[in-house]
Computed example of a mutant assay.
Amino acid sequence: MLTSGQLQHIVKHSMAYGYLLSQPFSFYVDAYPLHQNEVFEQTDSNLTYGQHNEAVRVLQQKLNYLSYYTKDIDGTFGLYTEHALKQFQKEQSLKPNGQANQETIVAIIKTERNRYLAPLKTIDRTYTIGETGDGIKSIQRALYYFGYYKDSIDGIFGPKTNEALYYFQVDHDLDVKQEINHQVVTALTEKQEEVKPPTVKTTKNQETTQQTTNDQTIHVAQKKAEQETYQSDQLIATAKQYVGTSYAWGGTSPSGFDCSGYINYVFNELGVSIPRTVSDIWNSAQPIEQLSIGDLVFFETYKKGPSHMGIYLGNHNFIHASESKGVSIASMDIDYWQQRYLGAKRIVVEK
């Protein structure tokens, strides 16, 4: 993981990206494996036989890539999906109950990640434009996994691979060169993501009251009777304390955050309890006419509607928990965030 506080994000800079944005969610989630994990993050319960949804479809696709599932990827959790899941669980020394619980999903994510990134360890030379080889295939797969490359894995260091490489180098403050060198390989292999089940944080001596804003409910937890609101400077200072914290699927504590878990934790530190998921926070918060420091900024990433968020810092910057860089600061002027920006809202605590 690179130095904290840099302008980081997962960029989808392939030539196919503009096309992907116009497609339905079922098409989009096929594009980049790392972003598929966000679908699991939004799932409140285990995936089990009989269900039909996007999370099941992602589960099938990952099991297919890992060579456990060979049937149609249709989002229906049937007998073949259950059988494939049991086979995976057995080989991972998990309870083979055929249910995709948190432990199983974490194992799937880790196994898939290793499958994409492990081959990078065998690269011991520099490749330049025009060269071919298995090492270039490994780089293409890794860039695809992280959302930079969306073309055929052909082992040819051509314009498409060079374009993906360029944006990866720019986004990670690497020397921009038209070559696959040790610096690039190291940056890819060090992009580690801690994956763990969600944790529930409880805070003592908090009294919860309820307010309604625009027909939505928001809960306000007060550590002290006089602490009925928060200041934006306090919010920003608290948020910045966790810069550099790693990303963790389902994470809600400083040992690892997902995007909404991070926002939830920061507000909770100020005595304000907000909903857990991005969509619920969007529905609960108050619409605003003018963006101010401390407001929440929302983005449409892997599906229609709000699916990612951060806290606005001013000067077109925001702080968030990124899957690729953990808690970090990013610029809203970057093309990716501009294209996906939905709007801003504010958490208002009334006395």
Rank of each mutant, 00 (worst) to 15 (best):
R113Q: 05
T43G: 13
Q92G: 04
N181L: 01
P96D: 03
Y312T: 11
Q241D: 11
G78V: 00
F27H: 12
P119I: 03
S279V: 03
E190V: 04
D30E: 13
A55K: 02
S253V: 12
Y65E: 14
Q99W: 09
Y69C: 12
G155F: 15
Q92E: 01
Q231T: 13
V170P: 07
I139D: 09
L342F: 06
L296D: 14
S322N: 10
I329W: 11
L117G: 15
I73V: 11
Y262T: 04
A344P: 03
L165A: 15
S232L: 04
T203V: 11
A239D: 12
K95R: 08
Y262D: 07
H316G: 10
Y148I: 08
D74A: 00
G310R: 00
F298W: 15
T126A: 08
K303F: 15
P275M: 01
K303N: 05
Q192V: 05
L47G: 11
P197Q: 04
S253R: 04
I129M: 09
E226A: 14
A225L: 07
D333Q: 05
Q6N: 14
N268S: 12
P254T: 07
Q36F: 07
D154M: 00
V272D: 07
K191R: 13
S45M: 07
E91L: 03
E38W: 03
Y312G: 09
A31M: 01
T301Y: 06
Q6H: 06
K201H: 11
A31C: 07
S4A: 10
V195I: 06
T212A: 07
E323T: 06
Q234T: 12
A330C: 12
Q42H: 09
R346A: 09
A84R: 00
P119V: 01
R276H: 15
I218V: 11
L270K: 02
K150N: 15
D154I: 02
L188W: 15
P306I: 02
F298I: 05
E82F: 14
K12I: 00
Q210T: 05
T186M: 01
L174P: 12
L270I: 00
K345W: 13
I347Y: 06
S14D: 02
N317W: 05
H35N: 11
T212L: 02
N162Y: 09
Y145E: 14
E112W: 03
G271K: 00
E194T: 13
H52L: 07
G314Y: 08
G256D: 03
H52C: 13
I73A: 04
G256N: 06
T238V: 08
M15D: 10
V58G: 02
V297S: 09
S328A: 15
K345N: 14
W282N: 06
Y149G: 14
A164W: 12
K95F: 15
Q183N: 13
T202F: 11
G147D: 04
D280Q: 01
I123K: 10
A285M: 02
N268T: 01
N53D: 14
F88K: 00
T76F: 13
F27G: 13
N101A: 09
N37D: 09
N101F: 08
L63Y: 08
G75E: 00
L66N: 13
T301W: 04
W337E: 08
K160M: 05
N53F: 04
M332D: 06
D280R: 01
M309E: 14
S152W: 06
G75I: 00
F257D: 06
